[in-house]
């Protein structure tokens, strides 16, 4: 690693202020950023740790939405969201490994928008709202592409607000080495329709499979997917699977998510 300082503000306001320094970068749980720093692929002058910002911690329920503070670790979501939003809790319980879940945060995951991250699928399928220090952005407008989001320089994800679906499920087919999803599909059934979001598969990052959404909004059953096919265009081709395979897995995993949804 190159040398840098770490600041640990306790309020969002102080964090935002600290991030105004040249080459300052926010530090969530660090589970992606720290390996990047070790490889000397980033050279911040300063990291602004968000771990001490109390107002970004924890889970709360507001009517039909579940609000998760941006600095909330996966392990907390896995346990505390279980009763209200089991599909989301289950997703959180399978991110990385136990030690990673004790450090990694939802804000970090959402802001990084790794094309194989799990949380973006839940946010997009739930129609979540990404809350930052300056504004609220719909998930549909937030994830712009691989590692790209609508966040501006110095803007922090302070919370994510998830509408709670009637039924949901996340199916992850893991890449055998990293254990990130080779394909992950989150299916969320709301009173007004079904949303399906896919991670791991596309060169454009997380996306909604709208044909499946329409079909499942008609009949919420795996059979509804019969006849649908995902195009392999734009799918990731790598050591672990080509585009055709990923496209195939999207359909398989969607069907399994529908079957398992509760």
């Amino acid at each position: 690693m190159y040398a840098f300082d770490i600041e640990r503000p306790t309020t969002v306001a102080d964090a935002v202020e600290a991030l105004k320094a040249d080459e300052a970068q926010p530090l969530g749980g660090g589970q992606t950023l720290i390996p990047t720093l070790k490889a000397r692929l980033a050279a911040p002058s300063k990291l602004v740790s968000l771990g001490n910002v109390k107002e970004m911690q924890g889970i709360s329920i507001d009517g039909d939405t579940l609000r998760i503070g941006g600095a909330t670790i996966h392990a907390t979501v896995a346990t505390e969201a279980r009763s209200r939003y089991p599909g989301l809790a289950r997703l959180a319980s399978k991110i990385g490994d136990p030690a990673v879940r004790n450090r990694g945060t939802i804000g970090g995951s959402i802001a990084n928008n790794d094309p194989a991250a799990c949380y973006p699928a839940a946010a997009l399928a739930s129609g979540a709202t990404i809350i930052t220090n300056t504004r609220q952005v719909a998930a549909d407008d937030f994830f712009l592409g691989m590692f790209e989001t609508a966040l501006d320089e110095g803007e922090i994800v302070t919370a994510v607000s998830f509408p709670i679906p009637e039924a949901s499920n996340y199916q992850k087919f893991v890449q055998p080495a990293s254990r990130f999803p080779l394909v992950g599909v989150f299916v969320a059934k709301f009173a007004d329709g079904v949303r399906v979001a896919v991670t791991g598969a596309s060169e454009g990052g997380v996306f909604r499979w709208t044909e499946a959404e329409q079909a499942l909004s008609g009949t919420f059953a795996p059979d509804a997917l019969d006849g649908l096919n995902v195009s392999e265009d734009g799918m990731i081709n790598d050591l672990h699977g080509d585009g055709e395979y990923r496209a195939h897995l999207i359909k398989i995993m969607t069907g399994r998510a529908v079957k398992a949804a509760s």
């Binding site: 080495a177 990293s178 050591l239």
Partner: peptide, 16 residues
């Protein structure tokens, strides 16, 4: 070397 870390070189884990 495309499989130059545990991100791409699949080591057997306990659940494999």
């Amino acid at each position: 070397l495309e499989s130059a870390s545990y991100m791409d070189y699949a080591m057997p884990r306990a659940d494999d």
